[in-house]
């Protein structure tokens, strides 16, 4: 296979614990779907499960396995790179996407933390520019990294504030 697009640099990877966050979300989601599909079958067959009644659950478990593998792979592809004038964020292996945001263009830097992320001690950093299409997030920032990076970015973008 041909070489794919890439940008050289010392990319900062996000924490691999984020794979666990993704995996937990995947497991919860597909369990809900699988059980939700199984229960009606169970009721419809007088509280007994025919052999094919296990199929949705099996499919869900298969999807969970795939999802967990993919969450590991996906987490490995997410990274960011601080350059002199812009912040570069990448994600995706199959669908690759690189976004570069000049520091002066950042309007808002958000830190969010969902319940699962909190279990693993991770935070997400979200950037907003004046363009709605360029909303980007860096998930899986461990510990204080998110705050440090945010403070740094805010300071830099304040010194380079460049209107719209």
């Amino acid at each position: 296979m041909a070489e794919r697009i890439d940008v050289d640099g010392e990319w900062q990877r996000i924490s691999m614990r984020y794979a666990s966050v993704e995996a937990v979300s995947t497991v919860i989601w597909w369990l809900i779907v699988g059980v939700g599909a199984t229960v009606p079958i169970w009721f419809a067959n007088d509280a007994r499960l025919p052999w094919w009644g296990w199929l949705p659950l099996a499919a869900a478990i298969l999807l969970i396995v795939i999802g967990v593998v993919f969450s590991v792979l996906r987490t490995r592809t997410i990274g960011y790179l601080q350059r002199d004038d812009d912040l570069l964020v990448r994600r995706g292996m199959l669908f690759r996407r690189f976004v570069a945001v000049p520091y002066g263009r950042m309007q808002v830097v958000d830190i969010t933390q969902g319940p699962v992320e909190r279990m693993f001690g991770l935070k997400s950093l979200k950037f907003v520019t004046a363009a709605a299409t360029s909303a980007i997030t860096i998930p899986g920032m461990p510990g204080d990294t998110a705050e440090q990076l945010r403070d740094h970015l805010v300071a830099v973008s304040e010194s380079r504030r460049a209107g719209l």
Binding site: M1, I5, L94, F95, R96, R97, F98, V99, A131, S134
Partner: peptide, 13 residues
């Protein structure tokens, strides 16, 4: 405001 570069699997091929 920002620039993005992207490549899906078919473009990748």
């Amino acid at each position: 405001q920002s620039v993005a570069m992207q490549q899906g699997p078919i473009y990748g091929l």
